[in-house]
């Protein structure tokens, strides 16, 4: 009896030891505990680095602050619009560039040049052009996301095989069907990569623009809270944004798997 129980316990331990999720969770919990300890024991000033428990309380606090709730709404709107603009322009420009070698040779180099330029140096120009309101955030967000989307869409369309082009020609595909039935499905991996990078770039751009000069949005609230030395509330904002990004990422992954079901089929 006794020996059997030990074996069961040992088996359970081995299983736990072999689980990546268990390791990950353990490290995370240890880090949070260490952070809590050094902050509470006064190793670092809790004003500058409040313990995790305080941040959790601050999350509930900021949701009672109507300015913070409004800030999430504004940032969400800016992000949504800037992403949609960048996605539409990115597809409208990326697909022709991907399909046509001449257009690609002519116009892809300047796009790649701007892709590698740090976008932040353009921010003041956007503020001059569009003011410190929502418009400049949307324009700057769309600008930042656009290049990533175009680059990946062009790469995705490049996956189109010559035999599929010939098939479309031989079967007399009209342009609309050529794009919808042949080009876009084969370019989906690139399109998805582009959209995800674009979304992240747009979010980063919108937040940086709000931090730099604005009168609303999450970045603006971060500025307000840090000016008040409310590091707890600032980190609460960071935590909420991070959580939203993680949720968005997993939703995006699900969508990609769903849209690429035929690819998954190939491997089963």
């Amino acid at each position: 009896m006794h020996g059997g129980a030990t074996a069961v316990t040992a088996g359970w331990l081995v299983a736990a030891w072999n689980s990546a999720a268990v390791h990950r969770t353990t490290i995370l919990l240890c880090t949070l505990a260490l952070w809590e300890a050094i902050s509470r024991l006064g190793v670092v000033d809790p004003i500058f680095l409040p313990p995790p428990s305080t941040i959790v309380l601050a999350v509930t606090e900021i949701f009672d602050d109507p300015r913070a709730v409004a800030a999430f709404r504004v940032t969400g709107l800016e992000l949504g619009l800037s992403f949609v603009i960048a996605a539409v322009l990115g597809l409208a420009i990326g697909i022709p560039l991907g399909l046509n070698r001449f257009l690609r040779d002519a116009f892809l180099p300047p796009i790649l040049f701007l892709l590698s330029t740090p976008k932040a140096i353009f921010l003041p120009i956007f503020l001059i052009l569009f003011g410190i309101g929502v418009d400049s955030k949307i324009a700057y967000g769309a600008f930042s996301a656009f290049f990533y989307i175009v680059d990946n869409v062009v790469g995705g369309v490049g996956l189109l095989e010559a035999k599929r082009r010939r098939l479309a020609r031989a079967f007399g595909a009209p342009l609309r069907h050529y794009l919808v039935d042949i080009v876009i499905p084969s370019a989906l991996p690139g399109i998805f990569a582009g959209m995800w990078h674009g979304l992240r770039q747009a979010l980063a751009a919108v937040l940086v623009a709000e931090l730099f000069a604005s009168d609303s949005g999450v970045g603006y609230m971060v500025r307000i809270y840090t000016n008040q030395f409310r590091t707890d509330k600032t980190l609460a904002l960071v935590a909420v944004v991070s959580l939203l990004v993680i949720v968005a990422g997993s939703l995006f992954n699900r969508l990609e798997v769903r849209m690429n079901r035929w690819r998954a089929v190939a491997h089963t």
Binding site: K163, R164, R166, L167, A170, F171, D181, I182, P185, S186, W262, R263, A266
Partner: peptide, 14 residues
């Protein structure tokens, strides 16, 4: 005139 090609040209997503 309709083709049947040498390579496999069915669309894998359909």
């Amino acid at each position: 005139a309709t083709f049947v090609f040498q390579e496999y040209t069915l669309l894998p997503w359909k």
